[in-house]
Amino acid sequence: MSDKKGRGARRSDRPPAADALKEKRDAFLHTFFKRGAELTDEIVHDNRRLREELAKLEAENTELKTQLASDRAIRDLLTKIEHLEREKARLLSTVRESEEITGRITNRFSEVESELESFANLYVASFQLHLTPDVGAVVRHIKELLEQLVGARSLAVYFVDEPRRCLEAVATAGVDAGSVPTIPLHEGQPGGEVQAAVERAFLTGVARVAEGENPPRPAACVPLILGERSLGVIVIYDLLEQKRRFVTVDRELFKLLGAHAAAAIVGAFHFHKSGERIPTPSELRAITS
């Protein structure tokens, strides 16, 4: 308290040097604060500028981040597309394989269908051919088989007359019996086209069956074989309008008729001639032993 009193009491009494010092101090303080204010202004200004720059950088950063995300998304999508392309290729390959398998199964199915039909026709043909020991019925069945199963419009069944060296028609269908000529066996000498074909089939024992659509006359000549001997020929002159060509089953049927028809005819003939006598077991044993 006394010190305070003392300082107040002494102000007017201060020496000039002290005043000068005070002025210097005030000047310094003024300059200091002014400079401080300027610095503060500068700092505020710099701070604002930096904030703006920061905001700008943040905006850029966000933009870059978006772009980066977008690039990543595109990369992801490209990877996904690549994966899907591979999957598509795999599925297409599976589809192709499945189609091939389906195609093979379909083909096999139609082959089996065709074979089944062939077997059915051959079964019926064989059954009917040996159904009766009556010659007339056997020949009728042969004609029927050719008409109904093959689709023959006109045909003749020739049998050999060995003493006269000629082939004579024993049955016809779809053609006047009187118009079917006897065919002399010239052994290669030229005759009409049909006659030559019939003769050739008889002499060679080889069937001639036309290939392709709308076959020329005769459409087929099938030799009738018994053992090693040719006994006759089935000749098909024309096919029905709706029957355009021979198919596999027809050729199989020709083979069957070629191998069995003569036996059926000859067997039925001898059975009839013998008064329908059947052999005794001892007779059969004598022949087979």
Binding site: E113, L116, E117, A120, E147, Q148, L149, V150, G151, L240, E241, Q242, K243
Partner: peptide, 28 residues
Amino acid sequence: TTEGSSEDRSRALQLGANAYITKPIQAP
């Protein structure tokens, strides 16, 4: 039937047949 003509076909259909198959028949 063995007849393949359209006349027979139309006659059969006129009389009330539902389908017409010509010989030689095929099982399928």
